[in-house]
Nucleic acid binder design. Structure first.
Lengths: 282, 282
DNA sequence: AGGAGCGATACCTCACGGGTATCGACGGTG
DNA sequence: CACCGTCGATACCCGTGAGGTATCGCTCCT
């Protein structure tokens, strides 16, 4: 099986629509149809069920989608890591740390400062990912180490170490009725209809449907909160970066959030090991 | 990057010789040369250093070799698992267990018997791998679960559970001088020059160089031992299957061998979970 | 009944993957 | 020191197949 065929299949399996998948792949629909049926012929198995109205996955298709994503990530990781190894030979070596845009700034700053004075420290590039995308950055080799948040991020195929656990707060516009409370419960938030949740972009740049505003950064969200256009639920530690026209109220029954440092298994980078050690000492 | 290019690169990186790699890939050397340099151009990085006398890996090449093997295994795993999911839809479902040819027969028999009476048990196909190849069978999707042996098999990217730990014995022809001893040490075996270690085939079917006989199965080895042509070091439990014209003598300072059951992370198969549970109860 | 939506089919084109022949650079050897 | 053997790169040719456009056939909605 060629990776091209697998990319095509994953696109169709995700979109469940040949036309849209072809568009996403930047090609016409007929060759895509043909490539998929050729793949099915080569595998000797049906992957998709085409009823004229909808495309659905067969059992084998579901398996190939799940395993295929892993394989494509591994392909991309191989390419990225080789690229980075090459540039490390020319320039100075460095590692890439992935974190959620705007999260845990304080912890991260402490970590980077502490690591910078470690003997043998290398440059650390920080990339900001959309929520839930840090793990993928690790799996595709765009990052060497990541800060992520249990239980939101999948970590089943990564090595992790816990850093800290904290509760969550609701961030609301100053003057909102709920800001008079000292604590909130999830049901209180569910009852809030005038402040829809913001919508973050998907990896491909498109936005999910919904009533909330489209956002790209945390500062943007805070601005929208202070304008009374949205609200946000975030870990306690975000309070240190809040503007004074927004109010944070603890949500007592929100899930505890554990901040963890994660890295790909098999990582044999000295710098990553040092950085993790530094993180654990904090 | 296409998987074809990666396969080509891995072949060259492993052979460190374009001609042999091309032969292994079943193609001519010039297109292979071209494909590799095209890959290097696309990555924007040199992967190989060609001195007219030898081909060596650059730093980036070494990274791409390591990561590329993982990625190619993942590609193959996706294909195999999809194939098996398809055939499971038609026929009855089954799982594949990989084990080393001829090892732990007793334990395995007990395990299969115990699992067979478990509610919801499915057919278990057993495949026999060359030494050290069970892990690869898991990683490439040819097997769902494997019996392997620490510390010989790599398990860093697999989930494992220990089953049992035992010492090792040297299996010698009856009448050999060392069979008068009740215990042996590794240095005793190293001093044995008349009985070379057997040579097992590599995954590609070729044999490593050496003085020992080429073998494909354990019975074959036992036959050769009884003929006084070779010797073997194996876990204690192999004693139960020995012919009476060979003698097993404990090797007191040989590494302890732990038999483990292993499966790919992310495996969400009910049958695999049941089999592992059964194994742990033994 | 008509039209819109969507995947499959038919057919064409050309880029590229793969083959053969050959070159060029080096190293061992008589 | 000239010769040859080895090995990767280059030049050139050819056929396959990936991708494009046009169109069909089926289904559902109005």
């Amino acid at each position: 099986m060629e990776s091209r065929e697998l990319r095509y299949f994953v696109a169709v399996a995700e979109e469940l629509h040949f036309g849209r998948a072809a568009q996403r792949l930047g090609m016409a629909q007929p060759p895509l149809s043909r490539a998929i049926s050729q793949l099915e012929r080569r595998l000797g198995a049906d992957l998709l069920v085409r009823t004229h109205r909808a495309v659905t996955l067969t059992e084998a298709g579901a398996v190939l989608l799940q395993e295929g994503r892993v394989a494509l990530d591994a392909m991309e990781a191989a390419e990225q890591r080789a690229r980075r190894a090459a540039s490390a030979t020319d320039d100075e070596p460095s590692i890439v740390l992935a974190t959620k845009a705007g999260a845990s700034t304080e912890l991260l700053a402490k970590l980077l400062d502490a690591y910078a004075v470690t003997p043998g420290a290398v440059r650390v590039d920080v990339i900001l990912c959309g929520p839930g995308e840090q793990g993928r950055a690790l799996r595709t080799g765009r990052a060497d180490v990541a800060i992520l948040h249990q239980p939101f991020d999948r970590t089943d195929d990564l090595d992790v170490e816990d850093l800290c656990t904290e509760g969550q707060v609701a961030v609301l516009p100053a003057g909102h009725p709920l800001t008079t409370r000292t604590t909130l419960r999830l049901e209180d938030l569910a009852a809030v209809t005038d402040l829809p949740e913001p919508r973050w972009p998907r990896p491909d740049g498109s936005y999910p449907a919904g009533p909330g505003p489209e956002v790209q950064s945390h500062t943007q969200v805070l601005q929208l909160v202070s304008l009374g256009r949205t609200m946000m639920v975030a870990p306690d530690s975000c309070r240190s970066q809040l503007r004074d026209d927004v109010v944070a109220v603890p949500v007592v029954d929100a899930q505890q959030v554990t901040t963890v440092v994660a890295w790909p298994p098999l990582s044999r980078s000295r710098a990553v090991a040092d950085l993790v050690q530094t993180a654990l000492r904090l």
